[in-house]
C-alpha cells in the first residue's frame, strides 16, 4: 500500500507537467492578453507591464521561467488583482469552495446511495418508479433553475434563509443543496443499476437460502459489492465539487474558486489560470488515489496496483 502511494506520487509528476504544458500553450495560443481590457493604456505602459511580468520574452523562455518558479513552489502573481499572489488568492477561495463542495458531496451520498438502493430492491414497484423519476428529473434540471427556484421559495417567498454571500452556516444551506442536486440524482441512478446487477449473483440466493434476512443480505453483502462503481465516480466527482461550481457561486454570489477561474480565463490572468488548473489536477489525482485505497477495503480482490 505504501509503495503504491509513493508510485502514485511519482507518476503524478509527468501527468502534471503535461497538463501544465498544455494549459500554458492553450492559453497563450488564443489571441488577447492580460492588459487588453484596461482602459486604453498607452502602448508604452503596456510594454512596461509586459516587461515586468516577463511577458515580452519568447514563449519558450516564458514557459521555462514558469516551470522554474513552479518547482520552487511559486505559483506567480495575478495581473488583475494587483499585489496578490496566486497562492494568496487560492488560499482565500479554495477553503470556501472546499466547504461548499464537501457539504454538497455529503448530501449527495447520504441521499443518493440509499435512494438508489431502495429503488433497486423494490424494483418495478411504485417506489422504484418514483425514485427513478425523481433522479432522472434531477439530472435534467439546469443548476441555475434549481438555484432560482430555491431562492424564490426559501428566500423571497418564505423568507427563511439567506440567498447570497458567504457569512454563516445558514448561508451554506441553499448553495449546498443546489450543488448536491445533480450529483444526488446521478449517484441514485448509478447505485440502482449497480445494486440490480449484484442482486442477480448466485451468492445472493445462497445468502437468502441460508436464512439471512433481506435487509442483512443487502446491507452486509450486496451494498459492499455494489458500491465499487459508485466509489469510482466519487473520485472525479469530489475533485469537481470541491474546486467550485461557477454557476452555484454565480447564483449565490459566493467568493469561491469557480468565479476566480472564470474571471481569470476571461482576463487572460495567465498565472491564476495555471494555478487553478493545476490545483484541480492535483486534487483529481489525490481523490483517484484515495478511491483506489477504498477499493481495497470494499473488495480485497481488487489489487491495489500501480
Amino acid at each position: 500500500m505504501f509503495a503504491m502511494i509513493i508510485k502514485r506520487v511519482l507518476s503524478a509528476i509527468p501527468v502534471l507537467l503535461i497538463i501544465a504544458t498544455l494549459t500554458f500553450c492553450l492559453v497563450r495560443v488564443v489571441p488577447g492578453g492580460p492588459f487588453d481590457e484596461d482602459k486604453n493604456l498607452p502602448p508604452e505602459i503596456i510594454k512596461n507591464l509586459e516587461a515586468k511580468y516577463n511577458l515580452d520574452k519568447p514563449i519558450a523562455e516564458q514557459y521555462l521561467l514558469y516551470l522554474g518558479r513552479l518547482v520552487r513552489g511559486d505559483l506567480g502573481v495575478s495581473y488583475k488583482y494587483v499585489d496578490r499572489t496566486v497562492t494568496d488568492i487560492l488560499g482565500d477561495a479554495f477553503p470556501v469552495s472546499l466547504q461548499l463542495g464537501l457539504a454538497g458531496l455529503t448530501i449527495a451520498i447520504i441521499v443518493g446511495v440509499p435512494l438508489g438502493t431502495l429503488a433497486a430492491t423494490r424494483r418495478g414497484t411504485f417506489i422504484d418508479v418514483l425514485a427513478m423519476f425523481i433522479s432522472t428529473a434531477g439530472i435534467s434540471v439546469p443548476v441555475f433553475v434549481i438555484g432560482a427556484l430555491l431562492i424564490y421559495v426559501f428566500g423571497i417567498w418564505l423568507r427563511l434563509l439567506p440567498v447570497g454571500l458567504w457569512e454563516s452556516p445558514a448561508h451554506m444551506i441553499l448553495p449546498a443543496v443546489t450543488l448536491a442536486f445533480g450529483p444526488t440524482a446521478y449517484l441514485a441512478r448509478l447505485t440502482r443499476a449497480s445494486v440490480l446487477e449484484v442482486l442477480e449473483k448466485d451468492w445472493v440466493r445462497t445468502a437468502r437460502s441460508k436464512g439471512l434476512s433481506a435487509y442483512a443480505t443487502v446491507s452486509r453483502h450486496v451494498l459492499r459489492n455494489a458500491l465499487v462503481p459508485v466509489v469510482t465516480v466519487l473520485g472525479p466527482l469530489t475533485a469537481i465539487l470541491v474546486t467550485g461550481s461557477f454557476v452555484v457561486e454565480f447564483v449565490y454570489a459566493i467568493p469561491g474558486m469557480g468565479r476566480f477561474f472564470i474571471t481569470a480565463v476571461m482576463n487572460r490572468d495567465y498565472d491564476l489560470i495555471m494555478g487553478t488548473t493545476l490545483l484541480f489536477a492535483v486534487l483529481l489525482i489525490f481523490t483517484n488515489t484515495l478511491v483506489d485505497i477504498i477499493y481495497h477495503f470494499l473488495d480485497p480482490r481488487i489489487r491495489v496496483e500501480d
Binding site: 501527468v15 503535461i18 497538463i19 498544455l22 494549459t23 492553450l26 492559453v27 488564443v30 489571441p31 488577447g32 461557477f246 477561474f261 472564470i262 480565463v265 476571461m266 489560470i273 488548473t277 484541480f280 489536477a281 483529481l284
Partner: peptide, 18 residues
C-alpha cells in the same frame, strides 16, 4: 485522457474567443 484532464469551461471559453 489528456483532453479529459483539461477543464471543459477553460476549453469552451478559449474556443469561444477563437
Amino acid at each position: 485522457d489528456i483532453a479529459y484532464s483539461l477543464p471543459d469551461l477553460l476549453v469552451m471559453i478559449l474556443l469561444g474567443v477563437l
